[in-house]
Write a protein that binds this DNA or RNA. Structure first.
Length: 206
DNA sequence: AACTCGGGGCA
DNA sequence: TGCCCAGAGTT
């Protein structure tokens, strides 16, 4: 595990401005965009949220939409029946349980319909700057390929990353690993020839 | 732990 | 045409 510092240093130098690829102007908008992002590419989510947030920038306005209205906005995201229902319920809960603002703890965030551990960690790290590592499919895949974690479950990978990455780097590591997974260390055809980590990676095929 | 939801992009 | 995608909820 002594390879952590070197890998983090390379990632930091490679992705100095890495940030979430989801459009948002507020914690609420990031929350909605992240709920929508399940099993869907971020480019399509950004097309949807551009229209949705233009019409309903805040929770109070979005809560006025019916589930049917929401379905019309988000249909191209896939899983639209569940997501529309969850977004409607989440807006309602934000207003009547959390006084209209997005809560800042993982436990409270996970009380919102459609918000699991991964989504909650994304909100904590990106919206509030609270140290958290969202181990989505990208982070999980990259960590395992690099040999940083040998874990079947994302929860195990999250624990290992937290143990070996300094806490002040958690939010950044989250950005780096997700961005690297999207652009280089792709699930299908990883671009190992263009990867700054290929000399350190036991899975690299050059 | 396995199953289901789902339209769109890509091979 | 078949496979896969910034997961979460249910059983």
């Amino acid at each position: 595990m002594t390879r952590f510092p070197e890998i983090l240093q390379i990632l930091a130098a490679t992705y100095p401005t890495a940030q979430t690829a989801l459009n948002h102007d507020s914690p609420f908008q990031l929350l909605i965009a992240t709920i929508l992002s399940a099993q869907c590419t971020d480019e399509r989510i950004n097309i949807i949220t551009r229209k949705l947030f233009s019409a309903c920038p805040t929770v109070l306005e979005m809560d006025q939409l019916s589930i049917s209205d929401l379905e019309d906005y988000i249909r191209s995201a896939g899983l639209w029946q569940t997501k529309a229902k969850n977004i409607k319920a989440t807006c309602h809960k934000l207003i009547y349980t959390f006084e209209g603002s997005v809560p800042k703890t993982r436990e409270e965030l996970m009380l919102l319909p459609g918000v699991g551990r991964k989504t909650a960690n994304v909100i904590l790290a990106n919206a509030f700057g609270i140290p958290a590592i969202a181990v989505d499919t990208h982070v999980h895949r990259v960590s395992n390929r690099l040999g940083l974690a040998t874990a079947k479950k994302p929860e195990q990978t999250e624990i290992i990353l937290m143990q070996h990455i300094p806490e002040q780097l958690w939010a950044k590591a989250h950005h780096w690993l997700i961005y690297h997974g999207r652009k280089i260390c792709k699930a299908r055809r990883p671009l190992c020839n263009n990867c700054p980590l290929n000399k350190l990676c036991p899975s690299a095929t050059l």
